[in-house]
Amino acid sequence: MPAASSPGLAFAHLNLRWNPFRDLTRDEWIDLADADCAGILNHLSGHDARPVVQLLGKKGAGKTSHLLAILRHRPEAAYVHIPEGQRREIPEARLILIDEAQRLTRRQKRHLFRSDTPLVLGTHTDFSARLTRCGRSVLSVHVHRQMTVERLHRLINARIAWSRRGPGTVPSVSSETTRALWTQWQPDVRRIMRELYLQFQNMKTPAEV
């Protein structure tokens, strides 16, 4: 049971504003997304006509983070997330990013794949054969291959830096801990964040984990 005394400022004892590994809003996710997008952006703005990028990977591997990192670089793009069992209208835009693209309806797939609009698809299903048949220039990126222990370490400590309340010491996560988490849970970065949430929830003073 939480102490019945008046609440203080959240996570002030760790010099943080909140638990760094809490759930994020869309805007926060865009700000924090750390993905290597150079190749993807090159493909989208290259000489190939009608480009498509597929982001393939399992749950928690980083497909949404990649999409939102692209959105940060290309703010004119339209981002659409399709929840399970639902349909979403696909807007007209110069670049369309679709999260959970395997949930597009047949009609939407036919229309989108045949259109000239550049696409980025976050998907569990590989559409490359079908896209190629539609005359699309396809770049497939397996997002879990993009993640390394070094990148994960950077991502984790960027979250902590983003949560900083003021000058002074804040907790940190060592590269050894990062490696151990990666060994145990790869490629599920979301699961790693969940483990760290619990660690930070129980932390009493700023220290290295």
Binding site: W18, N19, D23, Y197
Partner: peptide
């Protein structure tokens, strides 16, 4: 173009914000 102050409540933690 302007400076805006907003005040509101929000949740944070393990759930969606």
């Amino acid at each position: 173009n302007g400076i805006l102050l907003q005040h509101y409540w929000k949740t944070h933690g393990r759930g969606n914000v």
